[in-house]
Design a protein around this nucleic acid. Structure first.
Lengths: 101, 101
DNA sequence: CCACTGCTTTGATAAATGTCAAGATAGGCC
DNA sequence: GGCCTATCTTGACATTTATCAAAGCAGTGG
């Protein structure tokens, strides 16, 4: 890996683009959500909701944050909505953090 | 890499521990700061300050946020204060994001 | 068409955040 | 000791955020 945060400082432009993704992961609830979604090919909201002691409105709000950050995508199938992770987004962040080598 | 966000979902405990680090990187100013610090063995605040159009108080505040998240450490040497990155912290985050394999 | 379920949106509220100006500290130097 | 510079801390303010309750929308099935 050649271009981590440790080798070349990110430009203010890159920072503006990438910071929202980190920000989206910067809430414990959303980090856990993202993790649950990433651990499977896709995950139904109906499986996500009971994992947290939060109103469904709040769950939906957090999912929207993850979506708008580009970290996940979703699709409605019948009554249910399924979410999956966007691997490119994770990779972009991971590459940035690669300390060296 | 065996234990990324994509393989085993993080526990709520891990989420609580790691989210603040992501959160600290979730501001464009702080992300760029962290990047500048990581690009060198250490960096003087006096080099950091003129890179942003922000008051020195605000710079100091952001550095405190990075410090409290465990992402950087610092030491005073004479009049100047030097910051350096905490590689373990970056690695912890990077490992979590490793999409697979 | 009506009721029900799953999910999202809206409105409201308390708490957290980013910023600056101004004051406080610490160290170097006369 | 007294001044100057570098950094941090404090107080204030506007903005953003996390949350809930309630209302809205989309599909399913009677």
């Amino acid at each position: 890996m050649c271009c981590g945060l440790a080798t070349t400082p990110v430009t203010s432009l890159d920072a503006a683009r990438l910071a929202p993704m980190f920000k989206a992961l910067g809430d414990p609830v959303r980090l856990q959500m993202a993790s649950m979604i990433a651990a499977r090919p896709e995950l139904c909201v109906c499986e996500l909701t009971p994992a947290f002691e939060l109103s469904s409105g709040t769950i939906s709000h957090h999912l929207k944050t993850l979506r708008e950050a580009g970290l996940v995508e979703c699709e409605r199938r019948g009554t249910f909505v399924f979410y999956w992770i966007n691997p490119e987004a994770l990779q972009a962040l991971s590459a940035l953090l690669s300390v060296e080598a």
